[in-house]
């Protein structure tokens, strides 16, 4: 559990509060965020509508008008802050839930990886090396944002860390695997996007027909493994189509 000096809270508008648990992108800080997220979710605090974890923050969205009917001696904001302070005191941040380990197949065939060649050239390494570095470690899901189910994962090895494209593509195919700085991610849908595309996964990252529509959750650990174009097509035929 963090002591009071290690976090601070501020309003995120008149119906949300953000708790900042650090000031950088770092697995230990993010682990605190995820632990507190899981704990607060289980608490079901009255009037709380959403809890949104990010790299170093957790934002609690609440129903101001509903809570204001009961809370008259302080602001609703102050009341929510107090509930969170109590939760932080009781939450054993150190005891993290064991993260889910997710293995994701990626086809790095150049026909599905429009930026792989230039990315390898920019780092003066071979394409095979890029694939080795990308598949050679596990990545933490720091947060989900941008699109439904879009996981921001990190950190990629510095040998393949590459800034976003100067001008984004108007259409990135769903399933595309990309790199942006030290982050890696998968587009769940066809979408505009500026990440460097190095491959594609045949499996569905988002499925509206499931009660849990997202394959990846904040805090998960992800590894990628390479598959051939033939395997890619075979697997894709068995998956619901990317939207």
């Amino acid at each position: 559990m963090p002591n009071s000096a290690s976090y601070h809270m501020y309003p995120c508008g008149d119906h949300a509060v953000t708790i900042e648990l650090g000031n950088k992108v770092n697995a230990a800080i993010n682990q605190k965020v995820i632990s507190l997220f899981s704990y607060l979710k289980d608490q079901s605090i009255h009037g709380v509508k959403d809890i949104i974890p990010a790299y170093h923050t957790l934002t609690i969205v609440y129903d101001t008008a509903l809570l204001r009917k009961k809370i008259t001696t302080t602001t609703v904001y102050e009341w929510v802050c107090r509930q969170i302070q109590k939760a932080i005191e009781n939450c054993k941040m150190a005891i993290a839930k064991t993260p889910a380990l997710v293995r994701i197949p990626v086809c790095y065939d150049l026909s599905l990886a429009p930026d792989l060649k230039t990315l390898a050239a920019a780092h003066q390494i071979g394409i095979d090396e890029v694939i080795q570095w990308h598949t050679g470690k596990s990545y933490r899901v720091y947060m989900i944002g941008f699109l439904p189910g879009f996981a921001y994962m990190g950190s990629v090895h510095e040998k393949i860390s590459t800034p976003r494209k100067a001008s984004p593509r108007t259409l990135v195919p769903g399933g595309s695997v990309g790199i942006a700085g030290e982050q890696t991610g998968i587009y769940p849908f066809d979408s505009p996007g500026g990440w460097q595309l190095i491959g594609q996964t045949p499996i569905a990252i988002f499925n509206i027909h499931k009660t849990q529509p997202c394959l990846l959750q904040p805090g998960d650990e992800v590894t990628f493994y390479p598959i051939s174009l033939t395997e890619f097509q075979k697997m894709k035929d068995h998956e619901p189509a990317h939207s």
Binding site: T18, Y55, G145, Y152
Partner: peptide, 10 residues
Amino acid sequence: MISSAVTKGT
């Protein structure tokens, strides 16, 4: 800046 949650009206 490090990305974090935004809300309606931000």
